[in-house]
């Protein structure tokens, strides 16, 4: 099983992305050439840039962003954290689910600038080093996916579902996991995985 990445391995890419040149370069492309409003902190003029500090998976990132950048686009296109997926961009599918201060939210309907000051957890931040989170392990064990595209969102939603206390019965799990569409139709296996993981999560 290989995962071809031309040029750089994922790890290398992440370290590059997190360092200043790539991010600043991306922003400079916008700022350069045009006379633009100045970058400010915490507020922005229309058409300007805003300095945003994002805390993602325990790491702090300083970005200069168009205030229109959503959290999912900031994660994927600015920080190289592509585990969070885009399935609709309109809050209809749950693929972009992340945790914001421990609460599951949709990163496609969250402005990056509005996420400042919050602790964001994405699928990349769930495992403990090499050890998978019990929910991740349960998804593998129960084949709770097929194509895997909705899976990061499903798993983050599932972890929250257990923590919220909404995994008490199969029916409750089904209802509280209905914000995450799985077009492959792995629902019964997703429910089985959550039931399995919830005991291991100490719920």
């Amino acid at each position: 099983m290989t995962n071809p990445t031309p040029g750089a391995s994922r790890r290398e890419f992440l370290s590059t992305a997190a360092s200043a040149p790539l991010v600043a370069g991306a922003a400079a492309g916008v700022l350069g050439g045009e006379a633009r409003a100045q970058t400010t902190t915490g507020a922005a003029m229309a058409g300007g840039q805003v300095l945003v500090t994002l805390k993602v998976n325990g790491q702090t990132h300083r970005l200069s962003l168009d205030p229109r950048v959503t959290l999912v686009d900031a994660l994927r296109e600015h920080l190289g954290l592509t585990g969070t997926k885009v399935g609709c961009n309109h809050g209809q599918c749950g693929a972009c689910t992340v945790h914001k201060d421990g609460v599951r939210v949709l990163s496609c309907l969250t402005l990056a600038v509005a996420a400042e000051g919050s602790e964001i957890t994405t699928i990349e931040g769930l495992a403990d080093g090499d050890e998978l989170h019990p929910m991740q392990a349960a998804f593998v064990q129960h084949d709770a996916y097929q194509c895997g595209y909705c899976t990061p969102g499903q798993i983050l939603s599932a972890v929250a579902c257990v923590k919220e206390g909404h995994a008490g019965s199969d029916a409750e799990i089904r209802e509280y996991m209905s914000g995450n569409l799985c077009r492959c139709g792995a629902y019964v296996n997703i429910v089985a995985a959550i039931n399995d993981a919830k005991t291991k999560m100490g719920a």
Binding site: M1, G83, D143
Partner: peptide, 23 residues
């Protein structure tokens, strides 16, 4: 279980739009 399972549950499985290209 799927041999690509770990990549899928960690967000490391790389779909088309996940590939990084320079600039």
């Amino acid at each position: 279980p799927r041999i690509d399972g770990r990549l899928k549950v960690t967000g490391d499985a790389r779909y088309a739009a996940d590939f990084s290209v320079p600039n």
